[in-house]
Nucleic acid binder design. Sequence first.
DNA 1: GGTGCTATTGAACACTTGTTCAAGCTGCAT
DNA 2: ATGCAGCTTGAACAAGTGTTCAATAGCACC
Lengths: 192, 192
Amino acid sequence: MKSGQQGEQIDRQARILEAALELLSRHGISGVNMRAVAREAGVALGLVNYYFEDKMSLIRAVLHQIDERDVKLVAPDPASPPDGQLQKALRRLADPEFLTTEHLSLRLHLWALAQAHEDFALINAEAFERYLSGLAALIGNAKPELSSDECRVRAADIVVVQNGMWLTALLGVDESSIQRSIARTEEIAFAA
Amino acid sequence: MKSGQQGEQIDRQARILEAALELLSRHGISGVNMRAVAREAGVALGLVNYYFEDKMSLIRAVLHQIDERDVKLVAPDPASPPDGQLQKALRRLADPEFLTTEHLSLRLHLWALAQAHEDFALINAEAFERYLSGLAALIGNAKPELSSDECRVRAADIVVVQNGMWLTALLGVDESSIQRSIARTEEIAFAA
DNA sequence: GGTGCTATTGAACACTTGTTCAAGCTGCAT
DNA sequence: ATGCAGCTTGAACAAGTGTTCAATAGCACC
């Protein structure tokens, strides 16, 4: 039994981080306190401060984790043709995997934190820039005739609609408006 | 001096509410605590609990205030022709008055609160519905040939882009992407 | 067995938080 | 003046917060 009943019994640092994500998603930043995190992760209070120097460090780690997931959305996928990659990246936003309340809610709380704290704003701005560049690159691959400036313009316009989709999905607007918005992002991306 | 040096010395309840708005906008929900609100409003701690039974009540009042401002954006304006009203309502989002960080930030924190607390979610959902209906009505007036269902569909699509604009403006994307997004909302609204 | 190292625990501390309340203050009608 | 009602104050309390730390457990190596 030394390796745990699920194989996940170890690596408590990861468990703590996951617990913090879960709490942030469900109850917002005021739900993320050291004792609640410890309880959710099933560890003692002291261990949270053992792995994360600060509450601040813990939250920073949480934000980085969220950003990593998002940037992966526009990662190049060598297995597909360029325009297929772009289309897939655009449509993936409506996947059940990314349209979960948990994921959307995390993004929202991240934005709110970035708005309230300069430190978090930097983390967010950097991830946003990476996402924008990734998307512009996908567009550039799919439509080589476009200048790189034009690609960034289209990427920026798409991101506006995507951010709107994320938000609106959280507010519980009907699925069909999401689908139409995805079509809109494709129009912007593939316009002649 | 009984009526105050600025004429605003009185009506401390309003001052307290304003202080709470200011704090929520600048520091997020964790910046809104009774002592900070009292300090910002220039009153004693006890007075906050005198005018607002709870912290919860105070925040509810804050959220209602934010919602009121937003719903006004799509209020009918009898002084203009129908299509002018619609155009003005759509373009008003880019006004300096509404594109301030304070206003955008408040909206964002409202959404985050709604996500974390069922009670706040209801307030937000109700205001959202009012905004959507208002916008659909403006569209219906400007384009009488559309069915009311079609008006709501267009309103929903516009709201997605507008929410995206709000968010993206907060993240500091360039002004031009906002202008293009406004044009996009006009296209949706006035499409044949 | 002993030694050293990391991982883990929970009590303890100082501080902040929301809420209550007795006390005082104000303006006004009597 | 007197009384009264509503406004205003800040001290006090209980509960919750982040952080620290001495103590312990586990485990590899000698």
